[in-house]
């Protein structure tokens, strides 16, 4: 059987399986025309390689190196990394399923701790009379109502990211620094209150970061909780401002 051009092509490129390869090799060996064709094709490949060898050998132009080094990276990837989520977008559903049960347990624990500490040391949180849940009050409540993340944040209370959760509520992450403890968490705006979704309090760790909500300062349980609740990506400054103007609804 005379091999087709396709078979010969695959033969030259090393794409045939062992049996086929042996078969074609025997045919080529016994047929001068086939032999010449293979030789010609080897020469073609060498010529193509030689023609483009220069491109590979040359230094890459500066502007391309600069693009690779500095061009902006996908916002969604940055958010996922910042939240510590490694799954790709395709697995969103399973991420949620995986995180949710762990989260439910973690939340009970975290909130328990927060209330205990909260009641003794601060008045940032109170128990809602209508739902029995924890809501942000006093300075924290006001800060969540008014402050934009892009504004100067020098006080004890700082706002981090604003996002919509899967139920459609607007949520905001925060950090409250006191002498005795630092509290991180997020709260979602429902029924006029900032209902706390997760909280972690810990003793101040050495010198506090001087400015901003550094990503390293957000405790893992809070990141996990946010990544389980967030829908899409955090608001940019314009959406954050619009959301505030609409009363966080």
């Amino acid at each position: 059987m005379y091999p087709t051009k396709e078979t010969l092509s695959a033969f030259i490129d090393g794409e045939l399986d062992v049996a086929e390869r042996a078969q074609v090799a025997a045919l080529v060996e016994s047929d001068p025309k086939l032999k010449a064709y293979i030789a010609e094709q080897e020469e073609l490949r060498a010529t193509l390689h030689a023609a483009f060898a220069n491109v590979i050998a040359q230094p890459v132009p500066e502007h391309l190196l600069a693009t690779a080094a500095n061009a902006p990276i996908s916002l969604r990837v940055r958010v996922r990394r910042w939240l510590g989520v490694t799954q790709s977008t395709g697995n969103k559903g399973s991420t949620g399923r995986f995180v949710a049960p762990a989260l439910t347990m973690a939340l009970g624990l975290i909130i328990g701790v927060a209330v205990e500490r909260g009641s003794s040391s601060t008045s940032e949180f109170s128990v809602s009379s209508s739902t029995g849940g924890i809501v942000a009050s006093a300075e924290l409540g006001q800060t969540l109502d008014q402050r934009l993340a892009s504004e100067e944040q020098n006080g004890a209370t700082r706002v981090g990211i604003t996002f919509r959760d899967r139920s459609g509520a607007v949520c905001r992450s925060f950090e409250v620094s006191r002498d005795s403890s630092t509290t991180n968490g997020f709260a979602c705006h429902r029924g006029g209150d900032w209902q706390v979704g997760a909280l972690v309090s810990r003793p101040p760790s050495g010198p506090t970061p001087s400015y901003g909500l550094a990503s390293s300062s957000m405790p893992d349980p809070i990141r996990d909780a946010i990544s389980a609740h967030i829908e899409g990506v955090p608001f940019d400054a314009a959406s954050e401002r619009r959301a505030r103007d609409r009363g966080w609804n």
């Binding site: 902006p72 916002l75 940055r78 958010v79 993340a149 990211i161 990503s215 400054a237």
Partner: peptide, 15 residues
């Protein structure tokens, strides 16, 4: 690059 300036600084920096 709008997203660079408007994002919370932690995420903007992660570029």
């Amino acid at each position: 690059m709008a997203e660079e300036t408007v994002l919370p600084s932690v995420i903007a920096r992660s570029n």
